[in-house]
Design a protein around this nucleic acid. Structure first.
Lengths: 113, 113
DNA sequence: CTTCATAAGTAGCAACGCTACCTATAAGAA
DNA sequence: TTCTTATAGGTAGCGTTGCTACTTATGAAG
């Protein structure tokens, strides 16, 4: 996974990972790694700031707890977050359609000027 | 098209648009607009710097000409550019597969911790 | 003679993900 | 005991990238 490819799409992944119920950052990281068979192995320096960004935007809500002596910040999807996820799913479908069409091999481009 | 979505994928589009033969910047812009039914309408401030970037990277080669009193900078895909396009197509397929899988609705994520 | 399409460009900005760090606890190996 | 690994959270600063807004210039249409 090249870095730039993810830009603008990370939020959708994080929101989707929280769709099935609340999770803390580390668990989100692992969930993404597991569901993609290790192909999406994001560093903490990506995950944590992104979750804070989503929280600041009101798309997820975080709360502290202590489990087994370790503090955790669990996040849950807000209503706005669920709506945003829905929109981002649609955005992704549109974008993927555009890209796939444009990258199609042997595609007949308009006659070169 | 939200801005951030395109990040990291523009190069692939530009290279693909040059695959069918040399084109100048303005023609690349129009080709992308036409083949996507206007859904991908990139501003010149995106196209021109990106083409210069690709040229600096050796993926495309530019040459000046004058047609009907207007100067044009035509770009053609280099061999390295063709290889890069091939790689970017594969990257896109991988990335799209990851995203589509992760965004699948009702996907069973690993049990929340 | 003004407006539009064609054609190329730049300066500066904002956003984003990453690298490279730091802190802290629990568990397991040496 | 000590060292390492896994768990859990975080930040500072960087580089890349696409965009906005602007400039320059020619030809054609009205």
């Amino acid at each position: 996974m090249r870095a730039e490819e993810l830009k603008g799409h990370l939020d959708a992944l994080l929101l989707a990972a929280l769709e099935g119920g609340p999770r803390h950052g580390y668990a989100v990281m692992e969930a993404l790694r597991e569901t993609t068979d290790g192909r999406l192995d994001l560093p903490t320096g990506t995950i944590y700031p992104a979750l804070r960004r989503l929280e600041a935007a009101g798309l997820i809500a975080g709360s502290w707890s202590v489990v087994a002596g370790r503090r955790r910040r669990s996040y849950r999807l807000t209503e706005a977050g669920a709506r945003a996820l829905s929109g981002k799913r649609a955005d992704w479908r549109d974008f993927a359609a555009i890209m796939t069409a444009a990258l199609e091999e042997g595609r007949p481009w308009p006659s070169p000027a």
